[in-house]
Design a protein around this nucleic acid. Sequence first.
DNA 1: TAGATTGTTAATCGATTAACAATC
DNA 2: TAGATTGTTAATCGATTAACAATC
Lengths: 214, 214
Amino acid sequence: MVKTLRVPEATVTRLSIYSRYLERLDRNGVTSVSSGEIADGVGVSPAQVRKDLAYFGEFGTRGVGYNVKDLMRYTLKILGLDRHWNLVMVGAGNLGYALCTYKGFNMRGFSIVGVFDNDLTKIGKRINDLEVLPMESMPDIIKDHNVRIGIIATPTRAAQEVADYMIKCGMQAILNFAPLPLTLPDYIEVRNVDLSVKLEILTFNLGFKSAQNV
Amino acid sequence: MVKTLRVPEATVTRLSIYSRYLERLDRNGVTSVSSGEIADGVGVSPAQVRKDLAYFGEFGTRGVGYNVKDLMRYTLKILGLDRHWNLVMVGAGNLGYALCTYKGFNMRGFSIVGVFDNDLTKIGKRINDLEVLPMESMPDIIKDHNVRIGIIATPTRAAQEVADYMIKCGMQAILNFAPLPLTLPDYIEVRNVDLSVKLEILTFNLGFKSAQNV
DNA sequence: TAGATTGTTAATCGATTAACAATC
DNA sequence: TAGATTGTTAATCGATTAACAATC
């Protein structure tokens, strides 16, 4: 890296959204795009788009704009998506099943290569071409498939223990779907996907509008 | 409301997390808590906790801290969760199924009272005690159950059309699980839950660490 | 060339943190 | 009272926006 200015997480989040928008433009045969068009497409300001990109280099041509395919590839590369990522998941309930079959992951270069559960009624079941395995099988799968990221899709009460076990197995990053703040070492990357927080932002905002017939 | 200082969305997000943490403390029989303990529990600073609460009033006692049950109720009330919310959902695929059976929603006072799909192979199927209905049934269900919020769990290509239809049916807020920025009128509250953005933040961060054996 | 759009700097805005008086 | 912790103000930090020179 030439310049290592600290990149805001909000910028990385938007980059992910830009890159998906660029993929869509590319699929639709669009070859050139301006910061203003990207901004309109994803709902931010043109200055924001240019500022975000400026953290990583100069990708456009003044007076012209950006080449869609090039910028798409740059953004993917920045996000680390110019390669394939294997994942393991713990929790073979309905959410785990949905995540395993979620096309959005594959489209971005992610593959879930192992699903684990400690529930004997779930072990052995198949999800797509995967068999649900007991927790003890995790180390082997991780080694075989060079996995660095784990997904937690268990009930809340199991999440912390599962996270600890994942780290013991060598995971470097965790995506947690359980609505519980995990306590983990600093060197582990963790992000939470909370399914109901956004819903509560909606109810908060609706609360200030006419309550209709409550 | 006495004072109407604009509340940052980050504050509302944390409030949702505090309130769940307080519910947990309450279940565990804890009756009193300080801003520092809440901060430790959810991973923010004590000043942050106090500042967030200060937008809405004075809930603690100097020198003592907060009463868990009281603060829990206050936070729930602020979020609009002192009442029950009925929801409708479009999309009866794996994700829709997982969301319908997700306990986390019920625990916060949400009920999905209608699931819709335009896929004839899905219509008529049962999810818990709900039957998947054709889109045309949405207006009636919404009227019968006083629904104001809709969830989109469809494939990406259908999301915009579904959102437009929901608004036509009178929805005031939308929780969108499709990875696509929706274009909607300003008076509609929309929030996106993007299942892979957080994953890409992880790969971005891992990209700066030793790439191991790529 | 004239018009358009980038890359970047400076200005603004907003959120977080630190500090401390108030007070239990 | 002494110790603890809130509520709140001021200071700091960081992110967004505006503006414009560079340049295609």
